[in-house]
Amino acid sequence: MTAPPAWQADPYTDALRTGRGPLYLRRPDGWLLPLEVERWCAEPDAADRTVLARSRGTVLDIGCGPGRLVAALAARGRTALGIDVSPEAVARTIRIGGSALRRSVFDPLPREGSWNTALLIDGNVGIGGDPRALLSRVAQVVAPGGLLIAETAPLDVDERVRVRVFDGVAAQGTAFPWARVGAAALLRYGRGAGWSLRGTWTVGTRRFVALGRGSP
């Protein structure tokens, strides 16, 4: 497995260790996407709890970060696994009671083809910068009839960018591809990968889409 160097850069590792930002993804033109480190490192909030309530069966959290959802599922007696390319993210997930592996979603995965639910939360529909390829890969990971719960951008956007991790002082590591995708674009790419809409909902400023593998 080859992890993007950015996710091993000191500012990202330090932010997860301390539970504090500021931290951003920065485009070459200077545009910044805030990374909500404090929220990621806290207990699941009201929006997160809607995701936990809608997930079913075994759960794979793709890009689990510091592991709040995986740990919450484990505390409920659920079978859940987080995967992340960041060593610190994996270590923190394990420390708070979750199970996690240092792995990319594009690597071979445990229980491949049998997960009941996959999660792409906290903007992780951007992983790899190619939503079509990502959704096709997730379709291989979940079981027939399985569920994908994704958090989309709150606006109707569909963009590909190259970004670097930025701590407010200096950008770290090499640039890597990322994507920002709204609900309409996600559904369009999902249909091309064999997914169908199961539902949408919004909590505060956060927007979610549930897709099912196959026809409703």
Results as ranks from 00 to 15, higher is better:
residue 152 T to K: 02
residue 149 I to N: 02
residue 106 F to A: 06
residue 80 A to K: 13
residue 173 G to D: 10
residue 146 G to W: 00
residue 82 G to H: 13
residue 101 L to C: 10
residue 86 S to A: 13
residue 109 L to E: 12
residue 153 A to D: 15
residue 99 S to C: 03
residue 160 R to M: 08
residue 142 V to E: 00
residue 140 Q to S: 13
residue 125 V to P: 03
residue 122 D to Q: 13
residue 120 L to T: 00
residue 91 A to D: 15
residue 113 G to N: 12
residue 136 S to F: 04
residue 151 E to D: 11
residue 126 G to I: 02
residue 162 R to M: 07
residue 146 G to I: 06
residue 169 V to S: 12
residue 78 R to L: 10
residue 153 A to N: 14
residue 159 E to K: 01
residue 171 A to S: 15
residue 158 D to F: 08
residue 132 R to W: 05
residue 104 S to I: 11
residue 115 W to D: 00
residue 137 R to I: 10
residue 84 D to M: 06
residue 167 D to K: 06
residue 120 L to Q: 02
residue 112 E to G: 15
residue 97 G to A: 08
residue 79 T to P: 05
residue 140 Q to V: 09
residue 105 V to R: 00
residue 143 A to R: 07
residue 95 R to Y: 06
residue 126 G to E: 04
residue 79 T to Y: 08
residue 156 D to G: 05
residue 81 L to Y: 02
residue 148 L to H: 04
residue 118 A to N: 08
residue 126 G to R: 01
residue 95 R to N: 10
residue 94 I to F: 02
residue 167 D to P: 04
residue 110 P to Q: 14
residue 153 A to I: 08
residue 121 I to C: 00
residue 86 S to R: 12
residue 82 G to Y: 09
residue 78 R to P: 03
residue 133 A to G: 10
residue 151 E to A: 04
residue 157 V to L: 12
residue 79 T to N: 14
residue 91 A to L: 08
residue 90 V to H: 02
residue 82 G to N: 12
residue 121 I to K: 01
residue 148 L to K: 12
residue 159 E to W: 05
residue 86 S to C: 06
residue 168 G to N: 05
residue 152 T to H: 05
residue 78 R to Y: 06
residue 77 G to L: 10
residue 163 V to H: 03
residue 162 R to D: 02
residue 138 V to G: 04
residue 144 P to K: 09
residue 90 V to W: 04
residue 168 G to K: 03
residue 91 A to H: 12
residue 176 F to V: 11
residue 162 R to I: 01
residue 128 G to H: 14
residue 151 E to S: 05
residue 94 I to Q: 15
residue 149 I to L: 10
residue 119 L to V: 10
residue 127 I to T: 08
residue 148 L to R: 09
residue 145 G to H: 05
residue 129 G to C: 08
residue 110 P to L: 10
residue 137 R to F: 09
residue 172 Q to S: 15
residue 146 G to P: 07
residue 155 L to M: 14
residue 132 R to T: 14
residue 150 A to P: 09
residue 159 E to Y: 04
residue 173 G to M: 06
residue 139 A to T: 12
residue 115 W to H: 01
residue 168 G to E: 08
residue 77 G to W: 01
residue 111 R to D: 15
residue 110 P to R: 11
residue 177 P to H: 04
residue 174 T to V: 03
residue 109 L to C: 05
residue 175 A to R: 13
residue 109 L to Q: 07
residue 107 D to C: 04
residue 155 L to W: 14
residue 140 Q to A: 11
residue 113 G to R: 08
residue 86 S to V: 09
residue 134 L to K: 08
residue 113 G to T: 15
residue 177 P to K: 03
residue 110 P to H: 07
residue 96 I to L: 08
residue 116 N to I: 00
residue 95 R to L: 14
residue 93 T to F: 06
residue 118 A to M: 11
residue 87 P to K: 10
residue 134 L to C: 12
residue 125 V to R: 02
residue 159 E to C: 07
residue 110 P to A: 13
residue 119 L to Q: 00
residue 129 G to P: 02
residue 164 R to Q: 11
residue 99 S to W: 09
residue 123 G to K: 09
residue 131 P to V: 11
residue 150 A to N: 00
residue 108 P to I: 10
residue 109 L to M: 10
residue 137 R to H: 05
residue 136 S to P: 01
